[in-house]
Design a protein around this nucleic acid. Structure first.
Length: 871
RNA sequence: GCGAAAGUGGCGGAAUUUGGUAGACGCGCUAGAUUUAGGAUCUAGUCCCAAAUAGGGGUGGGGGUUCGAGUCCCCCCUUUCGCACCA
């Protein structure tokens, strides 16, 4: 999960991970929040020498408050029965070395939202941790000869400091690190539970293997048609191996049910497509060779149009059905097909090719003898690896039939027209129609075709309705060192057995050696694998594969509940209070990986009796977009367009970086970083500072506010409060900052007009600082203190909109003639339709255009507009 | 090919509840003020055409509904993302 922000930081951005980090690593120092003293000595970059005594000095302010917040435990979140809770979670980072701008973009608005919820009165927990197992650490180890553990924990230390500088409300007491034995002990424990509940199994099967990462990958980690490794974009190859799987397919139907969660449609669609449920039938075809072949079809109503059958080249019955005369050709084809997959099935318009096996099957609905072919357009991994081919009504089968001169027979009568003659068809007929040439079912209308056919085949005992899924069981074995060892012992006599719970964790050995074979050092370790069989006591061997790191990240939100808990993966009291996660934020790239795994994991744990309550782990999900480089390209070290947040924090302070990240783009969309744009939020905060720190005070005596000034100020304040509240609720951070900028402009004007010091001003300042608190917590805290408050601004409740004050008492009414803007009227709010109509009709803007015309109609929208229709 | 999202100034982006003043806020730019200086600050301006404040045009293109469309409907184009021989 790792990639808090953009897609594969983990490895594709090894770019990020390796070089950049390692250069500093020897000198890696814990990065502590600056104390006031040294921060002050750094000085402020933006200085107006004339105001040297009162200038905004973000670095000093931020360091001071971060220190105080830490000391006072301001953000500690504890179980408080009876108090409404809010569990705000953001996807944990992978400790790649340095926090980059994408991490800031993911975490800062999530933090602002969490702070807002806290001011709404919730007991908010906002924890953080590290997804610390994974390949970059091993790559670093091999490349730089640093132990993965050392590399990882040094990076964590560094990133922790960088995270602190953000000024978040993270409760660090809850930090969890997946590579910590106290953590992975429980990851292993979960594996054992899954194994004992038959939700984990070991199977010898073809799996995707990345030759560059030297490990197997889950189906979810193989991308695109070219079948590239998700991390290094190397084409994967296929290997036959004994591997561990989790039965996620058992949960396919439940995972399609999103009714209990508020997640973006996009994610729900991605997961739905990934699961790929399709209803159909399985039908058994007998073969002349004897072995029955089961097929899956979504169109059982076209059974009578099946004129041949196709098996995947890997289908186990290929050999059995192949005739002697075709054996050589078949063997050659299989070899070619296999090699093709191994090299990589090259892209685009692969023409369908296949070979006749020489064998025949019997179509069970009509007893016809149909040839059996093999072709690689039939996939062993979907359905049963065998299809009935209905060329008249399937585009692929049609193409294949034409190429090899196989019979095409239409069994659908289109709504208009006749049943097409197979030999004359130019393309497969895919539209609906009634059944034709279909024996007893001929004439069945399209609407009943499926049901009737299913009824028929089930009555005949030749098939039944089934559901096919695209999703496959989750392959979790990795042939790597830096991961949680799969807690299994292989005994010659007793088979694979789980490590007994009292022997967990199975610790990773530290004394490892990297051999150039690319193989996991665990496999080659001289002693680590040697154990006694827990059942018979004989010599046995440890499993040397480790778990997919997505297993670690499937339950980290549970470890945050009680990271030190020793009697189980989490403290049930904490679970009962805090779970489920109320707001989850992170990148969309995990839609079909982490976000589907963690749902499965939660449901599996529920069924194993480990947890109860909500059927879903995370109630609300929101995704942020990606920050691109200034060149509008994805950031990468090789492109040299990586934005380093530290430099901007040094120069402008965290509050400025925070507010700019919230302001510069729609959060869910992201966009290119602009180093000049940040000047805008920097200026804004300096103006806010001078407005509220006292430096804006005029030396001349102020005559007092003019007429209506206070009222106008209050109106703007409460209107802004209404908007900001609503925008926080809907994660519209850019307009929150815009609204605050607008209000400070308005207040500046009010100040010039003598509002300073008036009751309306005092109220405005208070509300302003409260609204500012979640966005820029340090400056808000400092100005709050300067205004004479003793208690932290972050302990205050969110202000309430005074609707009376927010109400406009005068409105501008637009006068249109034939829909075109012709003038404006200022009227008291709530003026009657008659008044508006008459004033509009008499207005010079209108009369100029209505003169000499007949007025046909006048539309009056109260407090909005008057449209005069005339011709 | 299938699925989803999106096209608004030079740029990032606003336009809420319900179709009702398009361009909020900021960047950039222009002019001026101030300053020894400025990548500082302040003031004014900044959709286009046209022009002193009139008027016309304008939200990817075309059509439609409506008194009125960035917003609703239909067709097309473009971009991005996901899936991709799924039977």
């Amino acid at each position: 999960m790792t990639r808090v922000n953009d897609e594969h930081h983990r490895l594709a951005d090894d770019d990020f991970a390796d070089d950049s980090v390692l250069t500093d690593l020897d000198a890696a120092q814990p990065f502590e929040a600056q104390t006031c003293d040294n921060a002050c000595s750094l000085g402020s970059v933006i200085v107006n020498p004339q105001d040297a005594t009162t200038e905004y000095d973000p670095l000093a302010i931020e360091a001071k408050w971060q220190q105080r917040w830490k000391e006072s435990g301001l953000y500690d979140a504890d179980v408080a029965p009876g108090r409404p809770k809010h569990y705000a979670l953001t996807m944990l980072p992978y400790p790649s070395g340095d926090l980059h701008i994408g991490h800031w973009y993911a975490i800062v608005p999530a933090d602002a939202h969490a702070r807002f919820m806290r001011m709404q009165g919730y007991n908010v927990m906002f924890p953080m941790g590290f997804d610390a197992f994974g390949l970059p650490a091993e790559n670093a180890a091999i490349k730089r000869n640093i132990h993965p553990k050392k590399w990882t924990f040094a990076n964590i230390e560094r990133m922790r400091g960088q995270l602190r500088r953000m000024g978040t409300m993270i409760d660090w007491r809850r930090e969890a690190i997946s590579a910590d034995p106290d953590y992975y002990r429980w990851t292993q424990w979960f594996f054992v539970q899954l194994l004992e509940h038959d939700l984990a199994y070991r199977k010898h099967s073809p799996v995707d293997w990345c030759p560059s990462c030297n490990t197997t990958l889950a189906r979810e980690q193989v991308w695109g048609e070219a079948r590239l490794c998700e991390r290094c974009e190397t084409p994967v190859i296929r290997k036959e191996l004994d591997q561990w799987f989790f039965r996620i397919t058992r949960y396919a139907d439940e995972l399609l049910d999103f009714s209990a969660i508020d997640w973006p449609d996009r994610v729900k669609t991605l997961q739905t497509n990934w699961i790929g449920r399709s209803e159909g039938a399985s039908v058994v075809f007998h073969t002349e060779a004897g072995a029955p072949v089961e097929i899956f079809t979504t169109r059982p109503d076209t059974l009578w149009g099946a004129t041949f059958m196709v098996l995947a080249p890997e289908h186990p019955l290929v050999e059995a059905v192949t005739s002697e005369t075709q054996a050589v050709e078949i063997a050659t084809y299989i070899e070619t097909a296999t090699r093709q997959t191994e090299i990589q099935r090259l892209a685009a318009d692969r023409e369908k090719a296949g070979v006749f096996t020489g064998g025949y099957a019997i179509n069970p609905v009509n007893g016809e003898r149909i040839p059996i072919w093999i072709a690689d357009y039939v996939l062993m991994t979907y359905g049963t690896g065998a299809i009935m081919a209905v060329p008249a009504h399937d585009a692929r089968d049609f193409e294949f039939a034409r190429k090899y001169g196989l019979e095409i027979r239409s069994v659908i009568r289109p709504d208009q027209g006749e049943v097409p003659e197979g030999a004359e068809m130019e393309a497969a007929l895919l539209t609906s129609g009634s059944m034709a040439n279909s024996g007893p079912l001929t004439g069945t209308p399209a609407a009943d075709a499926m049901a009737k056919t299913l009824e028929f085949i089930s009555a005949q005992g030749i098939g039944e309705s089934t559901v096919g899924y695209r999703i496959r069981d989750w392959l979790i074995s990795r042939q790597r060192y830096w991961g949680a060892p799969i807690p299994v012992i292989h005994c010659k006599d007793c088979g694979p057995l789980p490590v007994p719970e009292d022997q967990l964790p199975v610790l990773l050995p530290d004394d490892i050696e990297w051999l150039p074979t690319g193989e996991s050092p665990l496999k080659l370790h001289p002693t680590w694998r040697q154990v006694e069989c827990p059942a018979c006591g004989e010599a046995a061997e440890r499993e040397s594969d480790t778990m997919d790191t997505f297993m670690c990240s499937s339950w980290y939100h549970l470890r945050y509940l009680s990271p030190a808990f020793q009697d189980g993966p989490f403290d049930p009291d904490e679970y009962d209070y805090w779970m489920p996660v109320d707001t989850y934020t992170g990148g969309i790239e995990h839609a079909t990986m982490h976000l589907i795994y963690t749902r499965f994991f939660h449901k599996a744990c529920r069924d194993m009796g480990i947890l109860e309550g909500s059927d879903e782990p995370m109630v609300q999900l929101r995704n942020q977009g990606i920050v691109l480089g200034e060149d509008s390209e994805k950031m990468s070290k090789s492109r040299g367009n990586v934005v380093a947040p530290d430099a901007f924090v040094d120069r402008y302070g965290s509050d400025t970086v925070r507010s700019y990240l919230m302001f510069f783009a729609r959060w869910d969309q992201g966009g290119p970083w602009n180093s000049r744009g940040i000047e805008g939020t920097s200026r804004w905060l300096r103006r806010v500072w001078s407005l509220f720190s006292g430096t804006h005070q005029q030396t001349e005596p102020v005559p007092g506010p003019g007429p209506g000034i206070e009222e106008k100020l209050r109106r703007k304040v409460h209107q802004t409060l209404r908007q900001v509240t609503r925008d926080f609720e809907s994660f519209q951070f850019n307009t929150i900052v815009a609204a605050l900028m607008e209000l400070s402009n308005e207040m500046s004007l009010a100040h010039q007009n003598g509002a300073y010091g008036s009751p309306a001003w005092v109220e405005a300042r208070e509300i302003y600082l409260l609204m500012l608190a979640p966005v820029t917590p340090h400056i808000a805290e400092e100005l709050w203190a300067l205004s004479g408050r003793d208690e932290s601004v972050h302990l205050q409740l969110w202000p309430v909109v005074d609707e009376d004050a927010a109400r406009e008492d005068e409105v501008t009414i637009v006068v249109q003639v034939n829909g075109k803007l012709r003038g404006r009227l200022t009227l008291p709010a709530g003026a009657s339709e008659e008044t508006a109509r008459e004033l509009a009709l008499a207005s010079p803007g209108a009369t100029r255009f209505t003169e000499g015309k007949t007025i046909r109609k006048v539309i009056v929208v109260p407090d909005r507009l008057v449209n005069i229709v005339a011709n």
